[in-house]
Design a protein around this nucleic acid. Sequence first.
DNA 1: TGTACATCAGTGAACGCGCGTTCACTGATGTAC
DNA 2: TGTACATCAGTGAACGCGCGTTCACTGATGTAC
Lengths: 243, 243
Amino acid sequence: MDGERPRARTARERARAEIMGEIVATARRHLATEGAAGLSLRAVARELGMVSSAVYRYVASRDDLLTLLILDGYNALGEVAERAEAAVPRADLVGRWLAVCHAVRDWALAHPHEYALLFGTPVPGYAAPPDTVPAATRVTAVLATLLTDAVAADPALARRFADEVPGPVARSLLPVRPFVAHQVPDELVLRGLMAWTYLFGAVSFELFGHRHGVVDDDPVLRAAFFTAEATRIGDMTGVTGRS
Amino acid sequence: MDGERPRARTARERARAEIMGEIVATARRHLATEGAAGLSLRAVARELGMVSSAVYRYVASRDDLLTLLILDGYNALGEVAERAEAAVPRADLVGRWLAVCHAVRDWALAHPHEYALLFGTPVPGYAAPPDTVPAATRVTAVLATLLTDAVAADPALARRFADEVPGPVARSLLPVRPFVAHQVPDELVLRGLMAWTYLFGAVSFELFGHRHGVVDDDPVLRAAFFTAEATRIGDMTGVTGRS
DNA sequence: TGTACATCAGTGAACGCGCGTTCACTGATGTAC
DNA sequence: TGTACATCAGTGAACGCGCGTTCACTGATGTAC
Protein backbone atom coordinates (compact mmCIF):
# COMPACT_ATOMS: atom_id res chain seq x y z
CA MET A 1 0.00 0.00 0.00
CA ASP A 2 1.19 3.52 -0.71
CA GLY A 3 0.67 6.61 1.31
CA GLU A 4 0.47 4.91 4.69
CA ARG A 5 3.95 6.03 5.67
CA PRO A 6 3.94 9.11 7.86
CA ARG A 7 7.48 7.96 8.68
CA ALA A 8 9.71 10.61 10.20
CA ARG A 9 11.15 12.85 7.52
CA THR A 10 14.85 12.56 7.13
CA ALA A 11 17.11 15.59 7.39
CA ARG A 12 17.50 15.45 3.64
CA GLU A 13 13.77 15.61 3.08
CA ARG A 14 13.33 18.50 5.44
CA ALA A 15 16.20 20.40 3.90
CA ARG A 16 14.84 19.73 0.44
CA ALA A 17 11.39 21.04 1.26
CA GLU A 18 12.81 24.11 2.90
CA ILE A 19 15.11 25.02 0.05
CA MET A 20 12.37 24.35 -2.46
CA GLY A 21 10.26 26.85 -0.55
CA GLU A 22 13.07 29.40 -0.58
CA ILE A 23 13.48 29.03 -4.31
CA VAL A 24 9.83 29.68 -4.98
CA ALA A 25 9.70 32.54 -2.50
CA THR A 26 12.74 34.20 -4.01
CA ALA A 27 11.41 33.70 -7.51
CA ARG A 28 8.14 35.27 -6.46
CA ARG A 29 9.95 38.29 -5.09
CA HIS A 30 11.89 38.67 -8.31
CA LEU A 31 8.67 38.35 -10.24
CA ALA A 32 7.19 41.10 -8.10
CA THR A 33 9.98 43.51 -8.94
CA GLU A 34 11.10 42.60 -12.46
CA GLY A 35 8.06 40.97 -13.96
CA ALA A 36 7.87 37.55 -15.56
CA ALA A 37 10.16 38.40 -18.45
CA GLY A 38 12.96 39.30 -16.07
CA LEU A 39 12.74 36.16 -14.00
CA SER A 40 15.94 34.15 -14.25
CA LEU A 41 17.09 30.94 -12.64
CA ARG A 42 20.58 32.34 -12.29
CA ALA A 43 19.39 35.39 -10.39
CA VAL A 44 17.39 33.24 -8.01
CA ALA A 45 20.37 30.94 -7.43
CA ARG A 46 22.63 33.92 -6.90
CA GLU A 47 20.36 35.37 -4.27
CA LEU A 48 20.18 32.06 -2.44
CA GLY A 49 23.96 31.76 -2.49
CA MET A 50 23.96 28.62 -4.63
CA VAL A 51 25.62 28.07 -7.91
CA SER A 52 23.18 28.29 -10.80
CA SER A 53 23.35 24.63 -11.68
CA ALA A 54 22.29 23.63 -8.18
CA VAL A 55 18.79 24.93 -8.79
CA TYR A 56 18.34 22.13 -11.28
CA ARG A 57 18.20 19.67 -8.39
CA TYR A 58 14.88 21.31 -7.48
CA VAL A 59 13.41 22.63 -10.64
CA ALA A 60 13.61 21.02 -14.05
CA SER A 61 13.75 24.24 -16.04
CA ARG A 62 12.80 27.86 -16.09
CA ASP A 63 9.37 26.93 -17.38
CA ASP A 64 8.96 24.61 -14.47
CA LEU A 65 9.64 27.45 -12.08
CA LEU A 66 7.13 29.61 -13.92
CA THR A 67 4.53 26.91 -13.49
CA LEU A 68 5.15 26.86 -9.75
CA LEU A 69 4.68 30.61 -9.62
CA ILE A 70 1.50 30.44 -11.61
CA LEU A 71 0.12 27.77 -9.33
CA ASP A 72 1.12 29.85 -6.34
CA GLY A 73 -0.54 32.92 -7.79
CA TYR A 74 -3.83 31.24 -8.61
CA ASN A 75 -3.95 29.74 -5.16
CA ALA A 76 -3.21 33.01 -3.42
CA LEU A 77 -5.87 34.79 -5.46
CA GLY A 78 -8.35 31.97 -4.99
CA GLU A 79 -7.81 32.00 -1.28
CA VAL A 80 -8.42 35.71 -0.75
CA ALA A 81 -11.52 35.51 -2.91
CA GLU A 82 -12.87 32.50 -1.02
CA ARG A 83 -12.17 34.01 2.38
CA ALA A 84 -13.70 37.37 1.52
CA GLU A 85 -16.80 35.74 0.15
CA ALA A 86 -17.13 33.36 3.08
CA ALA A 87 -17.13 36.27 5.52
CA VAL A 88 -20.40 37.65 4.14
CA PRO A 89 -23.78 36.30 5.35
CA ARG A 90 -25.08 33.73 2.86
CA ALA A 91 -28.28 35.63 2.19
CA ASP A 92 -26.51 38.81 1.15
CA LEU A 93 -25.86 37.94 -2.46
CA VAL A 94 -24.82 41.39 -3.61
CA GLY A 95 -22.48 41.59 -0.65
CA ARG A 96 -20.93 38.28 -1.57
CA TRP A 97 -20.43 39.35 -5.18
CA LEU A 98 -18.90 42.67 -4.21
CA ALA A 99 -16.66 40.94 -1.69
CA VAL A 100 -15.24 38.71 -4.39
CA CYS A 101 -14.77 41.69 -6.70
CA HIS A 102 -12.90 43.75 -4.16
CA ALA A 103 -10.83 40.79 -3.01
CA VAL A 104 -9.67 40.17 -6.56
CA ARG A 105 -8.97 43.82 -7.21
CA ASP A 106 -7.15 44.37 -3.93
CA TRP A 107 -4.99 41.33 -4.48
CA ALA A 108 -4.21 42.46 -8.01
CA LEU A 109 -3.24 45.95 -6.89
CA ALA A 110 -1.03 44.46 -4.18
CA HIS A 111 0.58 41.93 -6.51
CA PRO A 112 0.55 43.51 -9.96
CA HIS A 113 3.22 41.34 -11.53
CA GLU A 114 1.74 38.14 -10.21
CA TYR A 115 -1.63 39.23 -11.51
CA ALA A 116 -0.06 40.03 -14.87
CA LEU A 117 1.51 36.59 -14.94
CA LEU A 118 -1.92 35.03 -14.56
CA PHE A 119 -4.07 37.37 -16.63
CA GLY A 120 -1.74 39.38 -18.83
CA THR A 121 -0.02 38.47 -22.05
CA PRO A 122 0.72 34.76 -22.12
CA VAL A 123 4.44 34.05 -21.84
CA PRO A 124 5.52 33.23 -25.41
CA GLY A 125 6.41 29.60 -25.87
CA TYR A 126 5.00 28.67 -22.51
CA ALA A 127 1.91 26.52 -22.08
CA ALA A 128 0.52 26.03 -18.60
CA PRO A 129 0.32 22.31 -17.79
CA PRO A 130 -3.12 20.87 -17.01
CA ASP A 131 -2.43 20.54 -13.29
CA THR A 132 -2.81 24.31 -12.91
CA VAL A 133 -6.49 24.04 -13.75
CA PRO A 134 -7.88 23.36 -10.26
CA ALA A 135 -6.03 26.36 -8.84
CA ALA A 136 -7.01 28.51 -11.79
CA THR A 137 -10.70 27.85 -11.34
CA ARG A 138 -11.07 28.67 -7.66
CA VAL A 139 -12.45 32.15 -8.22
CA THR A 140 -14.72 30.89 -10.95
CA ALA A 141 -15.99 28.20 -8.62
CA VAL A 142 -16.95 30.79 -6.03
CA LEU A 143 -18.88 32.73 -8.64
CA ALA A 144 -20.64 29.59 -9.86
CA THR A 145 -21.80 28.84 -6.33
CA LEU A 146 -23.03 32.38 -6.00
CA LEU A 147 -25.11 31.99 -9.10
CA THR A 148 -26.60 28.73 -7.92
CA ASP A 149 -27.39 30.22 -4.52
CA ALA A 150 -29.04 33.21 -6.14
CA VAL A 151 -31.36 31.02 -8.16
CA ALA A 152 -32.13 28.86 -5.13
CA ALA A 153 -32.91 31.91 -3.01
CA ASP A 154 -35.15 33.59 -5.54
CA PRO A 155 -37.20 31.39 -7.87
CA ALA A 156 -38.31 34.48 -9.76
CA LEU A 157 -34.76 34.90 -10.95
CA ALA A 158 -34.70 31.74 -13.02
CA ARG A 159 -38.05 32.67 -14.47
CA ARG A 160 -36.91 36.16 -15.33
CA PHE A 161 -34.07 34.76 -17.41
CA ALA A 162 -35.88 31.72 -18.71
CA ASP A 163 -35.92 32.85 -22.35
CA GLU A 164 -34.01 30.44 -24.51
CA VAL A 165 -30.72 31.73 -25.84
CA PRO A 166 -29.98 31.19 -29.55
CA GLY A 167 -28.84 27.67 -30.40
CA PRO A 168 -25.17 28.43 -31.09
CA VAL A 169 -24.93 30.38 -27.86
CA ALA A 170 -26.40 27.48 -25.91
CA ARG A 171 -23.93 25.16 -27.58
CA SER A 172 -21.04 27.48 -26.81
CA LEU A 173 -21.93 27.10 -23.14
CA LEU A 174 -21.77 23.31 -23.08
CA PRO A 175 -18.26 23.03 -21.61
CA VAL A 176 -19.22 25.07 -18.56
CA ARG A 177 -22.71 23.68 -18.03
CA PRO A 178 -21.55 20.71 -15.90
CA PHE A 179 -20.23 23.15 -13.32
CA VAL A 180 -23.45 25.07 -12.85
CA ALA A 181 -26.66 23.69 -11.36
CA HIS A 182 -29.21 22.83 -13.98
CA GLN A 183 -31.74 25.13 -12.33
CA VAL A 184 -29.68 28.02 -13.62
CA PRO A 185 -30.94 28.82 -17.12
CA ASP A 186 -28.49 29.39 -19.99
CA GLU A 187 -29.22 33.09 -20.08
CA LEU A 188 -28.08 33.36 -16.51
CA VAL A 189 -25.01 31.22 -17.08
CA LEU A 190 -24.10 33.56 -19.90
CA ARG A 191 -24.57 36.56 -17.65
CA GLY A 192 -22.53 34.90 -14.94
CA LEU A 193 -19.67 34.40 -17.38
CA MET A 194 -20.04 38.01 -18.36
CA ALA A 195 -19.74 39.11 -14.76
CA TRP A 196 -16.60 37.01 -14.41
CA THR A 197 -15.22 38.46 -17.65
CA TYR A 198 -16.04 41.97 -16.55
CA LEU A 199 -14.38 41.60 -13.18
CA PHE A 200 -11.04 40.65 -14.67
CA GLY A 201 -11.44 43.03 -17.59
CA ALA A 202 -11.90 45.95 -15.23
CA VAL A 203 -9.02 44.95 -13.00
CA SER A 204 -6.73 44.44 -15.99
CA PHE A 205 -7.70 47.75 -17.52
CA GLU A 206 -6.95 49.56 -14.30
CA LEU A 207 -3.71 47.71 -13.65
CA PHE A 208 -2.40 47.97 -17.18
CA GLY A 209 -2.90 51.71 -17.29
CA HIS A 210 -5.85 52.05 -19.62
CA ARG A 211 -7.73 54.29 -17.28
CA HIS A 212 -5.15 57.01 -17.18
CA GLY A 213 -6.82 60.20 -18.22
CA VAL A 214 -10.23 58.55 -18.13
CA VAL A 215 -11.00 57.72 -14.54
CA ASP A 216 -9.37 59.89 -11.87
CA ASP A 217 -6.14 58.45 -10.49
CA ASP A 218 -7.05 59.01 -6.85
CA PRO A 219 -7.25 55.61 -5.13
CA VAL A 220 -10.42 56.47 -3.24
CA LEU A 221 -12.22 57.59 -6.39
CA ARG A 222 -10.91 54.56 -8.23
CA ALA A 223 -12.40 52.32 -5.57
CA ALA A 224 -15.71 54.17 -5.78
CA PHE A 225 -15.74 53.75 -9.52
CA PHE A 226 -14.98 50.08 -9.15
CA THR A 227 -17.78 49.56 -6.67
CA ALA A 228 -20.13 51.32 -9.05
CA GLU A 229 -19.20 49.13 -12.00
CA ALA A 230 -19.28 45.94 -9.98
CA THR A 231 -22.70 46.84 -8.66
CA ARG A 232 -24.10 47.43 -12.12
CA ILE A 233 -22.67 44.17 -13.36
CA GLY A 234 -24.27 42.45 -10.40
CA ASP A 235 -27.56 44.00 -11.45
CA MET A 236 -27.12 42.58 -14.90
CA THR A 237 -27.08 39.06 -13.53
CA GLY A 238 -30.11 39.79 -11.41
CA VAL A 239 -28.01 39.53 -8.25
CA THR A 240 -29.24 42.76 -6.84
CA GLY A 241 -30.63 44.00 -3.56
CA ARG A 242 -33.76 45.48 -5.04
CA SER A 243 -35.39 42.68 -6.98
CA MET B 1 7.04 80.18 -42.84
CA ASP B 2 7.23 76.46 -42.29
CA GLY B 3 5.46 73.77 -44.16
CA GLU B 4 5.11 75.64 -47.44
CA ARG B 5 7.82 73.60 -49.09
CA PRO B 6 6.44 70.74 -51.13
CA ARG B 7 9.87 70.85 -52.74
CA ALA B 8 10.80 67.67 -54.57
CA ARG B 9 12.09 65.10 -52.13
CA THR B 10 15.67 64.25 -52.60
CA ALA B 11 16.81 60.69 -53.22
CA ARG B 12 18.08 60.60 -49.65
CA GLU B 13 14.72 61.57 -48.26
CA ARG B 14 12.91 59.01 -50.31
CA ALA B 15 15.37 56.29 -49.40
CA ARG B 16 15.12 57.22 -45.76
CA ALA B 17 11.33 57.04 -45.70
CA GLU B 18 11.36 53.74 -47.49
CA ILE B 19 13.88 52.10 -45.21
CA MET B 20 12.14 53.50 -42.16
CA GLY B 21 9.00 51.80 -43.42
CA GLU B 22 10.83 48.55 -43.94
CA ILE B 23 12.20 48.65 -40.43
CA VAL B 24 8.79 49.13 -38.90
CA ALA B 25 7.23 46.52 -41.17
CA THR B 26 9.89 43.97 -40.32
CA ALA B 27 9.64 44.74 -36.63
CA ARG B 28 5.90 44.27 -36.84
CA ARG B 29 6.33 40.88 -38.49
CA HIS B 30 8.76 39.83 -35.78
CA LEU B 31 6.32 41.05 -33.17
CA ALA B 32 3.62 38.96 -34.79
CA THR B 33 5.67 35.78 -34.54
CA GLU B 34 7.81 36.20 -31.43
CA GLY B 35 5.83 38.63 -29.33
CA ALA B 36 7.08 41.88 -27.86
CA ALA B 37 9.62 40.27 -25.55
CA GLY B 38 11.36 38.64 -28.49
CA LEU B 39 11.62 41.77 -30.56
CA SER B 40 15.25 42.73 -31.14
CA LEU B 41 16.91 45.49 -33.11
CA ARG B 42 19.62 43.11 -34.18
CA ALA B 43 17.17 40.62 -35.64
CA VAL B 44 15.41 43.36 -37.57
CA ALA B 45 18.71 44.67 -38.92
CA ARG B 46 19.79 41.16 -39.85
CA GLU B 47 16.64 40.54 -41.82
CA LEU B 48 17.04 43.81 -43.69
CA GLY B 49 20.63 42.95 -44.52
CA MET B 50 22.08 45.83 -42.58
CA VAL B 51 24.54 45.79 -39.79
CA SER B 52 22.89 46.23 -36.39
CA SER B 53 24.36 49.65 -35.73
CA ALA B 54 22.87 51.02 -38.94
CA VAL B 55 19.39 50.82 -37.49
CA TYR B 56 20.39 53.55 -35.09
CA ARG B 57 20.32 56.02 -37.97
CA TYR B 58 16.55 55.50 -38.01
CA VAL B 59 15.54 54.58 -34.53
CA ALA B 60 17.00 55.94 -31.32
CA SER B 61 16.63 52.77 -29.29
CA ARG B 62 14.67 49.60 -28.86
CA ASP B 63 12.07 51.49 -26.85
CA ASP B 64 11.71 53.94 -29.68
CA LEU B 65 10.93 51.09 -32.05
CA LEU B 66 8.40 49.72 -29.58
CA THR B 67 6.71 53.10 -29.52
CA LEU B 68 6.43 53.09 -33.29
CA LEU B 69 4.84 49.67 -33.17
CA ILE B 70 2.41 50.73 -30.50
CA LEU B 71 1.42 53.77 -32.51
CA ASP B 72 1.03 51.58 -35.56
CA GLY B 73 -1.10 49.12 -33.65
CA TYR B 74 -3.45 51.70 -32.17
CA ASN B 75 -3.88 53.29 -35.57
CA ALA B 76 -4.61 50.01 -37.29
CA LEU B 77 -7.13 49.06 -34.63
CA GLY B 78 -8.67 52.52 -34.62
CA GLU B 79 -9.04 52.44 -38.36
CA VAL B 80 -10.84 49.13 -38.59
CA ALA B 81 -13.15 50.20 -35.79
CA GLU B 82 -13.93 53.53 -37.43
CA ARG B 83 -14.51 51.98 -40.82
CA ALA B 84 -16.76 49.24 -39.51
CA GLU B 85 -18.82 51.68 -37.53
CA ALA B 86 -19.08 54.16 -40.39
CA ALA B 87 -20.52 51.47 -42.65
CA VAL B 88 -23.65 51.09 -40.53
CA PRO B 89 -26.64 53.44 -40.95
CA ARG B 90 -26.48 56.20 -38.34
CA ALA B 91 -29.85 55.35 -36.87
CA ASP B 92 -28.95 51.74 -36.15
CA LEU B 93 -27.25 52.26 -32.82
CA VAL B 94 -27.08 48.61 -31.81
CA GLY B 95 -25.67 47.81 -35.22
CA ARG B 96 -23.00 50.46 -34.82
CA TRP B 97 -22.03 49.17 -31.38
CA LEU B 98 -21.85 45.58 -32.56
CA ALA B 99 -19.84 46.62 -35.59
CA VAL B 100 -17.22 48.22 -33.37
CA CYS B 101 -17.16 45.16 -31.12
CA HIS B 102 -16.65 42.74 -33.96
CA ALA B 103 -14.10 44.94 -35.65
CA VAL B 104 -12.02 45.06 -32.48
CA ARG B 105 -12.32 41.35 -31.89
CA ASP B 106 -11.56 40.40 -35.48
CA TRP B 107 -8.53 42.61 -35.55
CA ALA B 108 -7.33 41.16 -32.26
CA LEU B 109 -7.76 37.59 -33.44
CA ALA B 110 -5.89 38.42 -36.63
CA HIS B 111 -3.10 40.27 -34.82
CA PRO B 112 -2.81 38.64 -31.41
CA HIS B 113 0.68 39.85 -30.57
CA GLU B 114 -0.01 43.38 -31.65
CA TYR B 115 -3.16 43.34 -29.56
CA ALA B 116 -1.18 41.97 -26.63
CA LEU B 117 1.34 44.75 -27.04
CA LEU B 118 -1.44 47.29 -26.69
CA PHE B 119 -3.66 45.66 -24.09
CA GLY B 120 -1.62 42.97 -22.40
CA THR B 121 1.01 43.19 -19.71
CA PRO B 122 2.84 46.49 -19.96
CA VAL B 123 6.44 46.02 -21.11
CA PRO B 124 8.50 46.35 -17.92
CA GLY B 125 10.53 49.53 -17.81
CA TYR B 126 8.73 50.97 -20.79
CA ALA B 127 6.44 53.97 -20.58
CA ALA B 128 4.49 54.98 -23.67
CA PRO B 129 5.23 58.60 -24.55
CA PRO B 130 2.31 61.06 -24.57
CA ASP B 131 2.19 61.27 -28.37
CA THR B 132 0.61 57.82 -28.48
CA VAL B 133 -2.52 59.18 -26.84
CA PRO B 134 -4.41 60.37 -29.93
CA ALA B 135 -3.95 57.01 -31.63
CA ALA B 136 -4.81 55.15 -28.45
CA THR B 137 -8.12 56.92 -28.06
CA ARG B 138 -9.55 56.40 -31.53
CA VAL B 139 -11.76 53.47 -30.52
CA THR B 140 -12.85 55.27 -27.41
CA ALA B 141 -13.75 58.31 -29.46
CA VAL B 142 -16.02 56.22 -31.67
CA LEU B 143 -17.78 54.88 -28.61
CA ALA B 144 -18.18 58.34 -27.14
CA THR B 145 -19.83 59.55 -30.32
CA LEU B 146 -22.13 56.56 -30.24
CA LEU B 147 -23.22 57.45 -26.75
CA THR B 148 -23.87 61.04 -27.68
CA ASP B 149 -25.85 60.00 -30.74
CA ALA B 150 -27.90 57.58 -28.68
CA VAL B 151 -28.92 60.30 -26.26
CA ALA B 152 -29.68 62.70 -29.10
CA ALA B 153 -31.82 60.11 -30.87
CA ASP B 154 -33.81 59.11 -27.84
CA PRO B 155 -34.48 61.73 -25.19
CA ALA B 156 -36.00 59.06 -23.00
CA LEU B 157 -32.58 57.54 -22.62
CA ALA B 158 -31.08 60.46 -20.75
CA ARG B 159 -34.14 60.53 -18.53
CA ARG B 160 -33.94 56.83 -17.83
CA PHE B 161 -30.40 57.22 -16.51
CA ALA B 162 -30.85 60.61 -14.93
CA ASP B 163 -30.40 59.42 -11.37
CA GLU B 164 -27.40 61.05 -9.76
CA VAL B 165 -24.45 58.78 -9.19
CA PRO B 166 -22.73 58.95 -5.78
CA GLY B 167 -20.42 61.94 -5.34
CA PRO B 168 -17.11 60.07 -5.50
CA VAL B 169 -18.21 58.24 -8.62
CA ALA B 170 -19.15 61.53 -10.28
CA ARG B 171 -15.76 62.93 -9.31
CA SER B 172 -13.99 59.87 -10.64
CA LEU B 173 -15.53 60.63 -14.02
CA LEU B 174 -14.26 64.20 -14.26
CA PRO B 175 -11.26 63.43 -16.51
CA VAL B 176 -13.48 61.90 -19.16
CA ARG B 177 -16.41 64.30 -18.94
CA PRO B 178 -14.93 66.86 -21.38
CA PHE B 179 -15.03 64.21 -24.09
CA VAL B 180 -18.70 63.38 -23.74
CA ALA B 181 -21.59 65.71 -24.51
CA HIS B 182 -23.10 67.23 -21.40
CA GLN B 183 -26.52 65.88 -22.34
CA VAL B 184 -25.18 62.44 -21.46
CA PRO B 185 -25.76 61.95 -17.73
CA ASP B 186 -23.03 60.56 -15.49
CA GLU B 187 -24.81 57.26 -15.09
CA LEU B 188 -24.65 56.79 -18.83
CA VAL B 189 -21.03 57.88 -19.06
CA LEU B 190 -20.26 55.27 -16.43
CA ARG B 191 -22.11 52.63 -18.40
CA GLY B 192 -20.36 53.70 -21.56
CA LEU B 193 -17.01 53.22 -19.86
CA MET B 194 -18.21 49.85 -18.70
CA ALA B 195 -19.10 48.84 -22.24
CA TRP B 196 -15.64 49.89 -23.37
CA THR B 197 -14.06 47.99 -20.49
CA TYR B 198 -16.14 44.94 -21.24
CA LEU B 199 -15.27 44.90 -24.90
CA PHE B 200 -11.54 44.73 -24.26
CA GLY B 201 -11.96 42.48 -21.25
CA ALA B 202 -13.83 39.93 -23.32
CA VAL B 203 -11.38 40.08 -26.20
CA SER B 204 -8.41 39.77 -23.83
CA PHE B 205 -9.97 36.83 -22.01
CA GLU B 206 -10.55 35.02 -25.23
CA LEU B 207 -7.15 35.83 -26.69
CA PHE B 208 -5.22 35.05 -23.56
CA GLY B 209 -6.78 31.63 -23.19
CA HIS B 210 -9.08 32.12 -20.22
CA ARG B 211 -12.03 30.65 -21.99
CA HIS B 212 -10.52 27.28 -22.61
CA GLY B 213 -12.77 24.71 -21.08
CA VAL B 214 -15.45 27.32 -20.43
CA VAL B 215 -16.74 28.47 -23.79
CA ASP B 216 -16.50 26.02 -26.67
CA ASP B 217 -13.40 26.44 -28.83
CA ASP B 218 -15.25 26.33 -32.13
CA PRO B 219 -14.81 29.69 -33.87
CA VAL B 220 -18.43 29.91 -34.94
CA LEU B 221 -19.70 29.28 -31.44
CA ARG B 222 -17.15 31.70 -30.05
CA ALA B 223 -18.47 34.37 -32.38
CA ALA B 224 -22.04 33.61 -31.35
CA PHE B 225 -21.08 33.87 -27.71
CA PHE B 226 -19.33 37.16 -28.39
CA THR B 227 -22.34 38.60 -30.16
CA ALA B 228 -24.50 37.55 -27.24
CA GLU B 229 -22.30 39.22 -24.67
CA ALA B 230 -21.86 42.38 -26.73
CA THR B 231 -25.61 42.61 -27.20
CA ARG B 232 -26.27 42.35 -23.49
CA ILE B 233 -23.67 44.98 -22.73
CA GLY B 234 -25.31 47.21 -25.31
CA ASP B 235 -28.60 46.69 -23.46
CA MET B 236 -26.95 47.79 -20.26
CA THR B 237 -26.17 51.17 -21.74
CA GLY B 238 -29.67 51.47 -23.09
CA VAL B 239 -28.39 51.18 -26.65
CA THR B 240 -30.84 48.53 -27.64
CA GLY B 241 -33.19 47.91 -30.50
CA ARG B 242 -36.27 47.39 -28.39
CA SER B 243 -36.56 50.54 -26.36
C1' DT C 1 26.56 -0.81 16.66
C1' DG C 2 29.46 -1.04 12.46
C1' DT C 3 30.61 -1.40 7.69
C1' DA C 4 29.84 -1.09 2.48
C1' DC C 5 27.35 0.82 -0.83
C1' DA C 6 23.84 3.86 -2.97
C1' DT C 7 21.71 8.18 -3.18
C1' DC C 8 21.72 12.81 -3.91
C1' DA C 9 22.79 18.10 -2.95
C1' DG C 10 25.83 21.21 -4.38
C1' DT C 11 30.34 22.75 -7.06
C1' DG C 12 32.82 24.84 -10.77
C1' DA C 13 33.83 25.15 -15.32
C1' DA C 14 32.24 25.37 -19.71
C1' DC C 15 29.25 25.73 -24.12
C1' DG C 16 26.91 28.58 -27.02
C1' DC C 17 23.81 32.00 -27.43
C1' DG C 18 21.89 36.77 -28.30
C1' DC C 19 21.32 41.24 -26.85
C1' DG C 20 21.68 46.90 -26.87
C1' DT C 21 24.67 50.35 -27.69
C1' DT C 22 29.03 53.06 -28.91
C1' DC C 23 32.59 54.63 -31.91
C1' DA C 24 35.84 55.84 -35.46
C1' DC C 25 35.63 55.10 -40.25
C1' DT C 26 34.43 55.35 -45.52
C1' DG C 27 32.07 56.77 -49.28
C1' DA C 28 28.03 58.43 -51.47
C1' DT C 29 24.59 62.23 -51.73
C1' DG C 30 23.29 67.08 -51.31
C1' DT C 31 24.23 72.21 -51.08
C1' DA C 32 26.33 76.81 -51.63
C1' DC C 33 28.87 79.62 -54.38
C1' DT D 1 28.00 73.75 -65.31
C1' DG D 2 31.80 72.94 -61.93
C1' DT D 3 34.14 72.82 -57.60
C1' DA D 4 34.66 72.59 -52.30
C1' DC D 5 32.61 71.44 -48.37
C1' DA D 6 28.98 69.55 -45.31
C1' DT D 7 25.78 66.07 -44.39
C1' DC D 8 24.59 61.63 -43.45
C1' DA D 9 23.75 56.30 -44.39
C1' DG D 10 25.96 52.39 -43.55
C1' DT D 11 30.31 49.49 -41.94
C1' DG D 12 32.84 46.62 -38.82
C1' DA D 13 34.74 45.87 -34.62
C1' DA D 14 34.25 46.01 -29.97
C1' DC D 15 32.38 46.41 -24.96
C1' DG D 16 30.04 44.31 -21.47
C1' DC D 17 26.24 41.96 -20.23
C1' DG D 18 23.23 37.94 -18.76
C1' DC D 19 21.01 33.94 -19.88
C1' DG D 20 19.65 28.42 -19.77
C1' DT D 21 21.55 24.19 -19.55
C1' DT D 22 25.04 20.26 -19.30
C1' DC D 23 28.54 17.56 -17.18
C1' DA D 24 32.03 15.28 -14.46
C1' DC D 25 33.15 15.83 -9.80
C1' DT D 26 33.18 15.74 -4.37
C1' DG D 27 31.46 14.93 -0.13
C1' DA D 28 27.74 14.44 2.98
C1' DT D 29 23.48 11.82 4.16
C1' DG D 30 20.73 7.59 4.16
C1' DT D 31 20.02 2.44 3.83
C1' DA D 32 20.73 -2.59 3.95
C1' DC D 33 22.90 -6.15 6.03
